[in-house]
Amino acid sequence: MARSEEAEAWANAVYSAIQEIPPGRVTTYAHIALLLGEPQRPRQVGVCLKSLPDPESGLEFNSSTVPWQRVINAQGKISHRGPGSAERQAEALREEGVEITTGSLNEYHISFSRYGWFPKKLPSEEGGNSDDE
């Protein structure tokens, strides 16, 4: 199903914002929504990531140009979206140097105090450094 113009604009804004997360850092669905001025839409951020096109799509925003692995849930855990998805995300983050712990229920957890990225504005909006906290 094709997206409406509004949905396409939202998805593109989400993907652009996620591209600003530095390697080795993570943020939440809710923080991306907040940065985009829509704090009530964290689930829609997740929907955008769930429907992120494959690189073969030829689209500008795809799973090789958008660092989807850098967005996790508000509890600092990787959300399961399907078989093997959490494992793939954990491996992609480990490749960036992020330390991941495994909980008693085999959930993957990332320390926000060590790897969190929570700027007040997107770096592209302030012309600043993407590591600003």
Rank of each mutant, 00 (worst) to 15 (best):
A2H: 12
A2D: 14
R3Y: 15
R3I: 00
S4A: 05
E5L: 11
E6H: 08
E6Q: 13
A7V: 05
E8K: 12
E8Y: 01
A9I: 02
W10H: 11
V14Y: 08
V14M: 05
S16D: 14
A17T: 08
A17R: 07
Q19T: 08
I21S: 10
I21F: 12
I21E: 02
P23W: 08
G24Y: 14
R25L: 08
V26R: 07
V26M: 03
V26D: 00
V26F: 06
T28P: 04
T28M: 04
T28S: 09
T28K: 02
T28I: 10
Y29W: 12
A30R: 14
H31T: 01
I32D: 12
I32Q: 08
A33K: 04
A33S: 05
A33E: 02
L34Y: 14
L34S: 11
L34V: 07
L35H: 07
L35T: 07
L35D: 10
L36K: 05
L36W: 10
G37R: 13
P39E: 06
R41Q: 15
P42R: 03
Q44M: 11
V47S: 14
L49C: 07
K50A: 07
K50S: 01
S51W: 06
P55Q: 13
E56N: 10
G58A: 05
G58Y: 12
G58S: 06
L59F: 11
E60D: 13
F61I: 01
F61T: 06
N62D: 13
S63F: 01
S63W: 02
T65V: 05
T65K: 00
T65N: 05
R70T: 02
V71D: 04
N73M: 03
Q75L: 11
Q75A: 11
G76R: 07
G76F: 04
H80F: 09
H80C: 05
G82Y: 14
G82C: 09
G84F: 04
G84H: 12
S85Q: 08
S85M: 03
A86F: 10
A86C: 08
E87V: 05
R88A: 10
R88C: 05
Q89R: 13
A90Q: 11
A92C: 03
A92W: 00
R94A: 13
G97Y: 14
G97D: 11
E99Q: 15
T102D: 02
T102F: 12
G103L: 15
G103S: 15
S104H: 14
E107K: 09
E107D: 12
Y108T: 00
Y108A: 01
H109V: 10
I110G: 00
I110F: 01
I110T: 01
S111G: 04
S111C: 09
R114W: 06
R114P: 13
Y115I: 01
Y115N: 02
W117C: 12
F118K: 11
K120N: 06
K120W: 11
K121H: 09
K121N: 02
K121L: 11
L122E: 06
P123N: 10
S124R: 15
E125R: 15
E126H: 15
E126P: 00
G128P: 00
G128W: 13
S130Q: 12
D131M: 15
E133V: 10
E133P: 04
E133C: 15
